[in-house]
Amino acid sequence: MSMIDLLAASMGLNVDDPTFWMPLAFMGIFFALVVAGTLLDGIDLGVGMLLVAAPGDLRSRMMVMLSPWRDANEFWLLLGAGLCAAAFPFAWGVIAGELVLPLALLALGAMLRSVSFEFRTRANAAMRPRWVAGFWLGSVITAFSHGLLLGRVATGYQHSVAHAWFDVFVGLCTVAAYLVLGGSWLIMRVDGPLRQMAVKGARHAIRWTAAGMVAVSVALGLANSGIFYKWGNVSDLTVAVPMWSVMLFCFVLMEVLLGRLARPDQVAWTALPFVLCLILFALMLCGLAYSLFPYLILDNLTLWDGAADVSSLRLVLAATVVAVPVMLVFSLLGYRTLFGQEKAPTGVVLPGGKSQLPGVVAAEGEQRTAG
C-alpha cells in the first residue's frame, strides 16, 4: 500500500472520501502556490537587492526589466495566504500566532517594495534614487522575513535564544539565496557590465546559499525524530541520496559556471545557472514538504485536523477553480518576457548629453502633462 492509502486507512477513511482527499488537494494547491511565489517573486527580490551593487546608470534598466510582471508576483502571496486561512482555519490561527514577526516583516517589505516601485516612475530626478533605495530595502526585508519564517518552521517554533540566532542565520542565508536567483536570471537576460555585476553578486552568495540549505536540513532532522527517521531510514535512502546528490551536483556546477562567466568574453551557457538555481529551490521546497507531511504543526496538528468541514471546502474549491485559472492567464501574459536575452534600450538623449530610459522619460512626460 502507498503512504496515502495507509494514511486513509489509519483514519478509518477511504481515499475517495471527500473528507480525506479534499484537504490533501488543498495542500497540493497551496504547495504549488508557495513554489511559484518563491521562484517568481524570488527573481524580483534578487534583482531588487542587486540594485545597490549596480552602477547608477543601470539601475533604471533593472527596474524597467521587472515592470511587465512584477505586479503579478504580489498575487501569489495573497492567494496562498487566503487559501491557507480558508481551507485550514483551525491551523491558521496557531501558525499565524507563531509567525507574527516574520509575517509582519513580510507585509512591511511587500508594502515598501510596491510603494517604492510605483513612486519611482512618478518622482522627479532628485527623488528617484531614494525610491530605488526604498525598493532595495523592501526587497532585503522581504527576503529576510522569508528566512525567519523558514527557520521558525524548521525548528518547530522553538523560542530559545539559540533558536532565535538560528532563525537569523537562515534569514541571512535566504537573502543570499535570492541574490543567487536574481543574479542568475540577470546573467541569462543581459550582457556587458550588468551581467558582470550579477555574476559577482551570485558568486559571493552561492556558498551562503548552500550553508543555509544544509542548516535547514540538519535542523529539521534534529528537531524531530520522525523527520530524522524519514531521511535516515535505509528504506528511504532511495529518495534522500539522489536528492542530496543532485543538489550537490547543482552547487558544484554553479560554482564552476559562475567562475567561467566572470570572464567578459564568456557568452556560452548563460542560461544554465538560472536553470540550476530553479532546480535547487524546487528540491529544497519539495524536501521541506516531504519532511513536514502530513503535519501542519509537527506532531500536533495534521492537515485533516486543521481543515474546515467538507461543505466549506467545497465553497473554497469553487472559488479556487475560478481564481487560479484567471491568475494563470494574467501571469502568463506578464511572464512571457521572463526568459531570453534582453536587448539594452537605446534611451533618449537629453540636453547636456545625458541619456535616460524611454520608460522613465515617458513617466516624467506624464508628470509634466499632469502638472
Rank of each mutant, 00 (worst) to 15 (best):
L179C: 14
I297R: 12
G347K: 01
G48L: 07
W21R: 05
L194S: 05
F75R: 00
M11G: 08
T346N: 08
L6F: 04
L248W: 06
S2Q: 09
A344W: 00
A32Q: 02
A81I: 01
Q367D: 05
G371M: 14
L106H: 02
A9H: 13
G287V: 08
G306A: 11
A96H: 06
A81H: 00
A8T: 07
F117K: 04
M27N: 12
G340M: 07
V310K: 08
N14I: 08
S217L: 15
F249K: 09
A8E: 07
L13R: 14
L350K: 04
M49K: 06
A205W: 02
P358M: 08
A133P: 00
V256F: 13
A318G: 14
D57Y: 03
L222H: 08
K230E: 08
P325N: 05
F90H: 15
M111T: 11
L7H: 03
I227T: 11
D16W: 11
S145C: 12
M254C: 12
T238E: 09
L77H: 03
A87T: 06
V100C: 10
L179K: 09
Q341M: 09
R203W: 05
D309T: 07
L112R: 06
L45C: 07
L105M: 15
R314M: 14
F169D: 13
C173P: 01
D41T: 02
D71R: 05
T155S: 15
A362P: 00
A289E: 14
A289C: 08
D17G: 11
L148P: 01
V153Y: 13
A219C: 14
V64R: 09
V329I: 13
A223H: 11
M49T: 13
A81N: 00
L50Q: 10
P351E: 11
V115D: 00
G56N: 13
L298W: 05
G82Y: 00
D299K: 09
D41L: 03
F144D: 04
V241W: 04
L77S: 02
G182T: 03
A344I: 00
M327V: 01
S184C: 13
M284V: 13
D44Q: 07
N233S: 15
R207K: 12
Q341P: 00
G151T: 11
S116R: 04
P264L: 11
T19Y: 12
A215M: 14
G134V: 07
E364L: 14
A125D: 10
E98P: 01
L332P: 00
L276H: 03
G287K: 12
P294M: 08
G334D: 07
W231H: 06
L313T: 05
R70T: 09
